[in-house]
Design a protein around this nucleic acid. Structure first.
Lengths: 270, 270
DNA sequence: CTTGACTCTCCCCCTAGGGCAGGGTCTATA
DNA sequence: TATAGACCCTGCCCTAGGGGGAGAGTCAAG
């Protein structure tokens, strides 16, 4: 009882293309090959083997693995160890993908928050009452752009404890270009002390807040607005001032600086 | 500030080969290309893009996806939806692999049991006391080999409730070729009734047991041994007799019939 | 004898690069 | 200025598991 490749394909559920490939690779050799026409003819024994191949393929074994397994003579111990190796491979894949998925979740979350922030923007000076917040911070002296090195460090160290947008505290009364006294912080959920990072409460209270849209180079304009507002109201402002980076250069794309959103908060002396 | 491809490769962590590929695909085009020598020179802007590409690749985005994303102009909504799509893809992969892993576990388990059975073989007629067992069975009249159609059906229906090796019950007092009265069964954990399948208790008791090694065609020889033993001891044997398929044609490989193991159990009338 | 369904081999395509060959280029040192 | 060693170019072949198609030959029924 012999079947042409098309019939055999329908019987086994393997495509004609695959059957030819398996023949070429020596994995499944047709019972008879017409020497004149080259037609392949398969028998029941071939069907048995084809079934095994189909099952092994469904386990994502590679063709070379399958070839080895078929040639190894179906020894039980070999079969079991091959299955266990494959299981391990798949588990590695799964754990790899799971890691990516959880990273993706974090990023999606933060991108969504950024987008949200942009739709709820006010751009007007307003007065707010802030709650106390637990933060993890690294204080240093240097240039503003140095905090680009500090934030990644904070993120690595605090990892999944992070609970909000990064912020900077500026301890200088006036603007300093090169030797500014800056503390880069992230809000955290728990107190997990790490060498070089200070985890503490950032006290709340009444403040003046302004959401600045655009490049960081023009933050000065927004500070002027806050200063003018405070003067008008007769408020005294305390240091450190706070800058909360609602939307900055994205994790993946740098984004358009004109869309960056930064909330400036200056506490009012009461 | 321009970098040759080798320097840029060290900076970005992308291989030279990859950089050339990305150039060819139009994903990352060097800032300057020396018209005379064809040398590629990259700048900081390229580095920015390279970083994005590296991150996206680490999320297993395809190059064509990455190209699209880069060309789409970094719109937030698009980015988020792309990330979510990719997350979905990865989750699908994970669930696919997880299914395979659980199937592999089942098979590994059963192959191990088979192997175990073979190492503990006795091949001597012995007397045993069996416990009651919950079984799911399908009774039919036909040839012995018809049970090859029945077992897959049982396995599909009972799925993960299966708790041991398949067995057949033979209700005929003598051997019948064509019109045998057979019940194909599997032990199950729970009583999950299904149309056409009888789930019930198979009563235990004292029996004569013999493990038959070899092809099913020579089972008769083992039945004769049991018959001789029973006659010697003066036992009356009850129907149905039981055949437990400890090791038969494997799930994947057909195996060597000379290694098949079948336990024959015949209950003793007390 | 014809016709339609099948089959053959050969070739190119896909991913994301790896590896190598043969030849040209850059830069520092003698 | 010559040259050595490092660097870079293009082009070709390879991976796994096929998909798609071209052009030619074959089978079976009417």
């Amino acid at each position: 009882m012999l079947f042409s490749i098309g019939e055999f394909s329908r019987i086994t559920g393997l495509t004609v293309k695959s059957l030819r490939l398996y023949h070429e690779k020596g994995i499944l050799i047709p019972h008879t090959i017409d020497a004149k026409t080259g037609y392949r003819y398969y028998n029941h024994q071939n069907a048995e083997k084809a079934r095994a191949i189909r099952i092994l393929r469904s386990f994502e074994f590679s063709l070379s693995d399958i070839k080895e397994m078929l040639e190894a003579g179906e020894d039980d111990a070999d079969l079991i160890s091959a299955l266990e190796r494959q299981k391990q491979n798949l588990q590695d894949q799964v754990s790899n993908y799971s890691k990516i998925i959880s990273t993706l979740n974090t990023i999606i979350q933060s991108e969504k928050e950024m987008q949200m922030a942009r739709t709820q923007q006010t751009h007007e000076v307003e007065e707010k009452t802030l709650d106390d917040t637990l933060i993890a911070g690294i204080r240093f002296k240097g240039k503003y752009c140095d905090c680009g090195n500090v934030f990644p460090k904070l993120c690595r160290q605090m990892g999944r404890y992070i609970r909000g947008k990064p912020l900077n505290l500026y301890y200088d009364a006036e603007y300093k270009e090169n030797d500014a006294d800056i503390e880069s912080c992230v809000p955290v959920r728990e107190c997990k002390p790490v060498e070089g990072i200070s985890v503490r409460n950032l006290p709340g209270g009444k403040c003046i807040s302004l959401i600045h849209q655009g490049s960081y180079e023009r933050l000065g304009e927004s500070y002027e607005k806050i200063g003018a507002y405070a003067k008008e109201k007769g408020y005294n402002l305390k240091i450190p001032s706070r800058e909360i980076y609602l939307k900055g250069p994205g994790m993946i794309f740098r984004g358009n600086p004109n869309k960056y959103l930064t909330e400036i908060q200056m506490m009012i002396e009461e």
